[in-house]
Design a protein around this nucleic acid. Structure first.
Lengths: 218, 218, 218, 218
DNA sequence: TATGAATGAGTATTCATTCAT
DNA sequence: AATGAATGAATACTCATTCAT
């Protein structure tokens, strides 16, 4: 019992350190942010941080890892569905956009992998490639299943990812645009140009509805 | 004459410093890059750099300024034209994309304004807002002149700018995609969804509109 | 009874700490060795060490003290005998050599008194002087009782002590030379040059003396 | 010209740093000595030291290297001679003893190789083995050429080296014993017990003299 | 008695910047 | 215009020690 609660307390403090650190790193940039200030904001001393992390770099990496885990989660969920390529892409865009509006999500694009150790840097770069591949895969799937019209998957993925990543730079929590609104709008607009034209003159209702679901934004 | 040539030689050296610096800053990041290494690559000594610049920060700012000047130039040129909003936007996208594929262009989005002095930081942020306004202005103009269909200028500008800025992160000079090809493709794809249906044969309203909205721009 | 057993258990643990510490200090050097590692090797935690010792320095001092006690013991024993100076010296060399082959013995010469508090440092230095005095005393006694031939006690003591102390640096428990063998050999060789010519056949004075001085001791 | 003098000034300052450092390291021990104090004694600032050395460890290594170089030098000189084993050994003892009375010489035995980087530590350990081998070699040579009577070269070398190394711990420059006196006495005493007994009853003068030169200490 | 957590003091190192030459 | 040398400010990290539980 004391062990479990100890452990929980410890994990909570660790999380608190990460939350504080990610905010500070985003605010001031990794290099300008000092562990002293992280500690000050937590009302502890600098060496206390070393109870939870081995180095500043490890903190940076953990921040990134949390954001990446969230991405991995929703990608796994989307992969598990049997939606067509266009729908998968749309779901990815929405989820990614929402993630970009969080601290940990933004850290995915605003932290510099070169600040990490070689080992961790490799992990990060591999994960980034993985995300890129997912975008391209959904686009390719969509072209294969007819939900997306022919295009260059690589460059299209870059365009979409660029728009999304940019959110991590301009989004402000208290601003006039909510994360959900942005995510919805991005999901709609970034994919509307890709939707294959519905087969003309389809009288039936249900299929039409489906079309709307798939290409409804136009 | 000797004065002029002196001055020219000086300017050339200054430019050489900037070219070396911008490359190094992009390669390693501003904080990891040392003036020592800049000097080494130029086969001069570190204090020699101070003949041309007052500080490391000034070098950073000058790199940014060169990229910004290029942007200002082509924006001025586009502004001076009497193209409609859509065409202006397309021209902006193309020019901006090409610029992103250069070192100085990439520095616009890969350098962190917080590394600058307060004064210079303000200049940079103002310029960034100016670019954003330009995107929105062209979109608004397009909506006004009928070349662009109704949309939210702010978010649309963010999407386009994000795609473009991202180029500065992934473009590699020797890669399979040339800057021109990328610029062409981006100018096409990033605006096709925005183009208002051409004025011809306006009779068939509703159905046509539907179709066009989906794939009409291409 | 429970009090006594408590106390005994405590002392045993204290000893275990010292045994572990002296090994680690010898292995890695006092400064590189951390109390954390001492604790780890004992499967306890660092603060637990403070139940037995007030500081790292006290541990160091206690290690030294154990080694010194052993030296004091055999010196007392030799002092109590009525051997002549040469024999006393030989016994001292043997005992000292054997002691040098133990962890606590080696700590006498491999630990740096300057790592101790001023108070303890003085104790250590006094003890070292005491050992030195003992060597000189035996030599002087030997010269007085005719068992040792004339020499400079001070420098002779330094030579012998140096050879002996060096054992603490090169001796390895599992090596080809056993502590006993080393001690025996050292006791023999380090004193053979000092032995006065045996009293027999004193007739042939000059030439004999000459010869003996050279190789006479063996 | 300015280049040469610059270089010389630089080397002199480097040497001054080493002289100050070796003294301080000997006085206080490597770990207790701070670069700050080294700098203070030189009336410069700590970072200025980094103009001459890359790290504290490098300073330590350089101190050792100077002492080692002196040893290498006189070993090379002795090796080059055609003296018999006993004479070589005696010359080695004398030179080594004198070296031990210098700061750099003492640093050979009072600095801990474990404070060095793995690379430098290996160099040091190799050099130490080399010295040991030299002692044993001279002893073996002496036994082969008849100047040294049979003994165990390994243990004999340890005894002699121990006496010599100990000088580095107790010698004090201003003390009553001069380095030369010590070296002379050590050369005599540490080898007298090893000299092979001259062939008995040698009438002839010259050979006898020779004997004296070789084994004269007995 | 033992522990997890926290602390404070201390140190090597880096690097932009300046200065005398 | 250029350089070698020097500086000062700043920061991550270590570890013995303490304290509340």
């Amino acid at each position: 019992m004391p062990f479990e609660s100890r452990r929980r307390a410890r994990d909570e403090k660790r999380d608190a350190v990460l939350r504080t650190a990610v905010q500070l790193f985003l605010e001031q940039g990794y290099h300008r942010a000092t562990l002293n200030e992280v500690a000050e904001r937590l009302n502890i001393t600098k060496p206390a941080l070393y109870n939870y992390f081995r180095s500043k770099e490890e903190i940076l990496f953990e921040c990134w890892a949390i954001g990446q885990e969230q991405v991995d989660d929703f990608i796994a969920e989307i992969n598990a569905s049997d939606d067509n390529g266009l729908v998968k892409l749309r779901r990815l865009v929405r989820a990614y956009a929402e993630n970009m509006a969080t601290d940990y999500g933004a850290s995915l694009v605003r932290f510099d992998p070169r600040d990490l150790s070689e080992k961790n840097s490799r992990i990060v770069r591999a994960a980034k490639r993985g995300i890129d591949r997912t975008f391209r895969k959904y686009i390719a799937e969509g072209m294969a299943d007819g939900s997306i019209k022919p295009c260059d998957p690589k460059m299209t993925a870059f365009m979409i990812a660029g728009s999304l990543n940019w959110i991590g730079h301009w989004f402000q929590p208290g601003g006039e645009l909510s994360a959900e609104a942005i995510a919805g709008e991005f999901a709609l607009r970034l994919t509307e140009g890709l939707a294959a034209r519905p087969a003309r003159k389809r009288a039936a209702a249900a299929p039409a509805k489906r079309r709307r679901a798939g290409g409804g934004s136009r």
